[in-house]
């Protein structure tokens, strides 16, 4: 579900007409496919309104800001809608805020700076044009809240004014036209074609929370490495037979680990085989599981000097050279 944020109600008029909606609060409305939020003007108001809604409405996964803005006449055209790429902020002391946000719109080429105070002169506007050709009053704040709540963020700005001149357009007179143009831009927003991760869980397996995380990570990495889609990859998996679904899952995960990094998998297996021979109730040799060092660890329980000598004698046959070679990636073919 998306939430569409407008500073003023007039900017949203076409959206109200586009789909039946019901009022939830005086400034929040719900239609079939989206919420409409009227945030009021300025960053403080935008932050408060959006935070309140996102904190209480988990079904929202994307925030879309639509509204009017002023543009640099050399880089933007009046009465055009621009999809926004990066959002900057000019603070109340007129310094630029270091933090910026980027929208999920990969096609966007225009940036916006949200200003705390209204721009009074062309000199002030020119300073901001160094960073972006579009100026507004809310977008950065909405992007900031969206990021905090881990929501996708999109932004469209309709250029209603020349930023180097005093604001003159009577928004009221052309509000309907502006809103219709914004609605058009919104309707042309590409829909998310991402595969639902639930579709990528193979049938007949039972995953714990940790196993599911690991499975998803492995699936993603192997698909990247092999340059195939996750669905194609799943189709190429062999069938694993085990009595318990959990054992089946373990077999699948082991298979995927091997698939992702056959070299390291093979090293670990051979190290495990070697160390298994030196593992019993009172003696255990283990290697550094990160494989980042040559360190070997010996755990030994003994009851007397003779017992210790006996157990240490067991280690005479430990193939140190072979283990070191494996840890250093040598002679592994």
């Amino acid at each position: 579900m998306q939430i569409l944020c407008f500073a003023h109600r007039l900017e949203a008029s076409a959206f109200f007409n586009h789909a039946p909606n019901k009022s939830i609060t005086p400034y929040l409305f719900k239609a079939d496919k989206y919420y409409i939020l009227i945030t009021g003007e300025g960053m403080q108001s935008a932050t408060e309104h959006l935070t309140e809604v996102l904190a209480t409405t988990p079904e929202i996964n994307a925030v879309i800001n639509l509204g009017v803005a002023a543009g640099n006449p050399e880089q933007t055209e009046l009465n055009h809608v621009y999809p926004i790429r990066t959002l900057y902020r000019q603070r109340a002391d007129l310094q630029m805020e270091f933090r910026s946000f980027t929208t999920q719109n990969k096609e966007a080429q225009f940036d916006v700076t949200s200003t705390e105070t209204r721009i009074q002169s062309s000199e002030d506007a020119n300073k901001i044009f160094q960073f972006s050709p579009i100026l507004d009053r809310e977008a950065w704040a909405l992007a900031s809240v969206s990021k905090r709540f881990k929501k996708d963020f999109f932004c469209f700005k309709y250029i209603s004014d020349d930023a180097t001149k005093e604001a003159c357009s009577q928004i009221k007179d052309i509000a309907e036209e502006i809103s219709l143009t914004l609605l058009n831009a919104y309707l042309n927003l590409p829909t998310d074609k991402n595969e639902n991760t639930e579709d990528l869980i193979p049938k007949g397996y039972h995953f714990t929370f940790t196993q599911k995380n690991e499975y998803e990570k492995l699936l993603h990495k192997i698909s990247l490495k092999k340059n195939i889609s996750p669905k194609q990859l799943i189709a190429s998996f062999p069938t694993f037979n085990a009595k318990k679904p959990n054992d089946k899952t373990k077999l699948l995960l082991t298979f995927m680990q091997e698939h992702l990094d056959p070299f390291t998998f093979n090293i670990k297996q051979r190290l495990n085989e070697i160390t298994a021979k030196y593992k019993n109730d009172s003696l255990k040799v283990s290697y550094d599981k990160s494989l980042e060092s040559d360190d070997l660890e010996l755990n030994i329980k003994f009851t007397s000097a003779d017992d210790l000598a006996n157990k240490l004698r067991n280690l005479d046959s430990f193939p140190f050279e072979k283990v070191l070679d494996l840890l250093r990636g040598k002679n592994v073919e």
Binding site: K221, I222, S223, L224, K225, K226, N227, L260, D261, F263, T264, I267, S290, L291, E292, S293, L326, L327, R328, G329, K330, V332
Partner: peptide, 28 residues
Amino acid sequence: SPMLGGPFYTSFDNKVRYSRPLRLHLLR
């Protein structure tokens, strides 16, 4: 990027690298 398929791990110096046996094998 296929490069992100790694396989990467956190290494001795907290950098992201291939496993030590693999990178030593490649270098050699």
